[in-house]
Design a protein around this nucleic acid. Structure first.
Length: 431
RNA sequence: GGAGGCUUCGCCUAGUCCGGUCUAUGGCGCCGCACUGCUAAUGCGGUUUGGGUUAAUCCCCAUCCCGGGUUCAAAUCCCGGAGCCUCCGCCA
């Protein structure tokens, strides 16, 4: 939810944001109209309630002779209050609807345009050259005994997979590396629920336009999260945070589930686009004034992680029309996939400013002791499946083995490469 | 899955049986003031969170886990839900 006060005082700003997103500008006027109508309804209901309260007190004090008349008046007022409250409820929900229909106000310097208008900020690392026919991650993974799509489909359907042998070890190694680096950077590590209540889902903005993407567990009224962001944001919902020592940072580990509706035919091969994967997600609560700087810090941690994995990548600044509902600004990191000769999204970090926190009731006490809405930010540290895909491709060698980047070796028993038929006992940290 | 208990303004707590005096008690903590060479102690006052209104104050409304209901009137009565705790069953 955007800041209502901003909409009242600077409707032009919000309208400009809507235009930049390619969204409907008239929604701002709808918001203001419903806001005015609600305030009117509030006043009417409050005034009537005050009157009725007084009338109700009078009933008690009335003499037996006065009583019937006083009681009649109280009853009449009660009926009016009931009506006014119904009108208020309607006005409230009209405002809420209009409010929810407006996505976050985009940051001022976000590139204009849509999906194809992301601006490349920098490209890091050399695009690798191979003097042998490049294989894609699935071919490599199958040869290694690391990925089993066929049996994944047998057990769970399309876009499911097994990570086996070195693939499974790679997942744990990546998890360890990601969590270790996050903790070293001051994050609190968290293992988060993957199944959440609707409020958490709604609060993070995933039940709006992305409703189709979400798995619902009908029987229990719960949802499978598409990212740990949902659980991490929900974790502090309704709380007043102490941000006096700076941002509150969590590194969450959880499985993520996505229906991938509307992506038929896209990335059908391998584990680049799957219904389920595990992820280490960074999440930060901070004062709104600090959000933009914090955003760059999250981006820097993402970059350092990819550098540690020795993966070439580029950083792109996502254009206004391609931002999610909650994001005021978003940077993606796209890593090089040799089999596709292109950069593909590996991580993504969003500054949601106060948009999520307002809906989730997450506040902090400012220097004057006033409660203010906090800002929330999130960023992928490591989406495991896709990272494995990228690692296998970039670090592949002519003989079908895959070299292990140095940073990952401690978590793989020092192994310098993954090779078909390798002895797995040599690829685990000391027991 | 079954049975029972609990949830009150930062924390603890009174009030709930029997509806109005609850504009919610007291303690702790916190803030201000007074007293005092200083500190401590003491005294006095303040201290939930939202919304409406306002230049600001005042004021008004809501808020006793959440949502409904009964009633002129609900912390209090009724129904539904959530969370916590205990016990039984089951389970990794």
């Amino acid at each position: 939810m955007i800041d209502l006060r901003l909409a009242r005082e600077h409707p032009d700003l919000v309208k400009a944001s809507q235009r930049a997103r390619g969204a409907d500008e008239s929604r701002v006027d709808e918001l203001l109209a419903t806001d005015a109508a609600r305030r009117e309804a509030v006043k009417r209901a409050d005034d009537l309630r005050a009157e009725q309260k007084a009338a109700s007190q009078a009933v008690k004090k009335a003499t037996p002779e006065e009583r019937p008349a006083v009681l009649d008046r109280a009853k009449a007022l009660a009926a009016q209050v009931k009506q006014a409250e119904e009108a208020l409820r309607a006005a409230d929900s009209a405002l809420r609807d209009a409010h929810l229909r407006i996505p976050n106000v985009v940051a001022g310097d976000v590139p204009p345009g849509g999906e194809d208008d992301a601006v490349t900020m920098r490209t890091v690392g050399e695009v690798p050259q191979y003097d042998f026919p490049v294989r894609d991650h699935l071919e490599i993974g199958e040869a290694l005994g690391a990925i089993d799509m066929e049996r994944g489909a047998k057990v769970a359907g399309a876009r499911f997979y097994f990570l086996t042998g070195p693939g499974a070890l790679l997942e744990f190694a990546l998890a360890q590396l990601a969590i270790s680096r996050a903790v070293a950077a001051g994050f609190t590590p968290v293992v988060a629920p993957a199944l959440v209540r609707p409020e958490a889902m709604e609060g993070t903005g995933f039940l709006g336009e992305h409703d189709e993407e979400v798995y619902r567990v009908e029987r229990d009224g719960l949802y499978l999260v598409g990212t740990s962001e949902v659980a991490l944001a929900g974790m502090r919902a309704g709380e007043v945070l102490d941000l006096s020592a700076g941002p509150l940072r969590y590194a969450g580990w959880s499985s993520c589930f996505r229906r991938e509706a509307g992506s038929y035919g896209k990335d059908t091969r391998g584990i680049i686009r799957v219904h389920w994967f595990d992820k280490v997600e960074m999440f930060s609560f901070c004062a709104p004034a600090e959000a933009a700087a914090e955003h760059l810090r999250l981006l820097a941690w993402e970059e350092e992680f990819l550098q540690a994995l020795e993966l070439p990548y580029r950083v792109v600044d996502i254009a206004a029309g391609d931002l999610g509902t909650s994001a005021a600004r978003k940077y993606d990191i796209e890593a090089w996939f040799p089999s596709q000769s292109t950069y593909r999204e590996l991580t993504s970090t969003s500054d949601c400013t106060t948009f999520q926190a307002r809906r989730l009731g997450i506040r902090y006490r400012d220097a004057d002791g006033r409660n203010q809405t906090a800002a929330t930010l999130n960023g992928t540290l490591c989406a495991v499946a896709r990272t494995i895909a990228c690692l296998l491709e970039v670090h592949q060698r002519a003989d079908g083995s895959v070299s292990v980047p140095k940073a990952l070796r401690p978590w793989l028993g020092g192994a310098e490469a993954l090779t078909p038929g390798m002895d797995l006992a040599g690829a685990v940290p000391p027991a």
